[in-house]
Design a binder for these strands. Structure first.
Lengths: 198, 198
DNA sequence: TGACAAAGCGGAGCGCTGCTCCGGATAGTA
DNA sequence: TACTATCCGGAGCAGCGCTCCGCTTTGTCA
């Protein structure tokens, strides 16, 4: 099911040069279309934007999740990499966790429809879901463990549940002044903290 | 845009008897199909189950939201009605809020795909969203106000944000042992409570 | 009872999707 | 230059939402 590399980036090596070029063209076009039409944009539209046929897109990215993953790969990796850094630089493990979640939320909120896709009822995005989990779950777990270790938060919270909850809270139309997922997530973190006057 | 009654139930009066019968047939069929295939089930499938044409469904329920609303109307009303009752019977306003949210979550979780639909990116379900807000937002606001009044929770939380957050947390595949929205909602409520040793 | 609007019904049909598949073009090599 | 493995394009199929109009049924009135 999976190529040798999670997002199939290495598949761009040892291919014909026109194929490599097309792959990049599709990635660029997809990134542009995702901004305006969301990650659910019709494949035909992405193909038109790239000036290639649909077959070309499906050949390079068999599932939609593969395409989305490839487009956002760098940012997901950045987010994963930021975890340990924050743990070292922040004032406390809890602060690191909070800041890392901020990064994660910023990433999700600025990608139109990405959070929706992650929890989509259909399994069209199963591979995307899997990639997020592979890369980010260990980071979240590490931050969570450190915060528990430091006594900042109560133990028992599962990283998967927390991440999925945060992702879920980011679902929905953007720019609704009545709804800011950050406020609810702050509340959630508050609930995670130990009662301060134990 | 709207009929005289929010979900158009009164439209079953003063119509031809065969039309009334068909309306009921469609409602019953839709309820059955929703259980197995979710609220996103193809209209053709509901029509087949009811043994009517698609035109009949669209005539009685112009949008999908109208159909979903009509199917779940009684349960939504029950949930709305439970608010004041709980406020009178529960030990504290905060307990009432908690129990009411439990009811709301139970309702959402047992309807396959309903929570997804409520926050759907497309506006196919706009009327459903509106109906939920019309009926449940005032109830939630009342419970929230009472809890603030009693000093159980900190002020400042907007009912809309809370309800939508809870709805969002209920999104996703059911029966995943790794994810129980109730645990996160409990955490959220914990964060809502005043620091007990003020 | 019989006739006749009015109301209701069914599903063919259109437009839009995702995805496949194969004839034709192209790149790299001998 | 000739040749083949590789890649490309988009026609085509299936599934969906939704509309539209010829046909059927109902209720009424003479």
């Amino acid at each position: 099911m999976a190529t040798e590399s999670p997002a199939g980036e290495s598949s761009s090596r040892s291919k014909r040069t026109d194929a490599q070029r097309n792959r990049q063209t599709v990635l660029t076009a997809a990134a542009e279309v995702f901004i305006t039409s969301g990650v659910d944009a019709p494949i035909r539209q992405i193909a038109a934007q790239a000036g290639v046929g649909m077959g070309t897109i499906y050949r390079h990215f068999p599932t939609r999740a593969d395409l989305v993953t490839a487009v956002y790969r760098h940012q997901i990796e950045e987010c994963a990499g930021a975890g340990p850094d924050l743990l070292a630089s922040a004032g406390s493990p809890f602060d690191a966790l909070r800041q890392w979640i901020d990064l994660f939320v910023d990433f999700l909120v600025t990608k139109h429809g990405l959070a929706d896709a992650l929890q989509s009822d259909s399994d069209r995005f199963a591979a995307l879901h899997a990639y997020f989990l592979d890369r980010l779950l260990p980071v979240c777990a590490q931050l969570l463990d450190a915060a528990v270790e430091a006594g900042d938060i109560r133990p028992g919270t599962q990283p998967y549940e927390l991440m999925r909850g945060i992702g879920n809270l980011c679902i929905g139309r953007d720019n609704d002044p009545r709804y800011d997922p950050r406020r609810l997530i702050a509340l959630l973190l508050q609930g995670l903290q130990r009662p301060q006057a134990s």
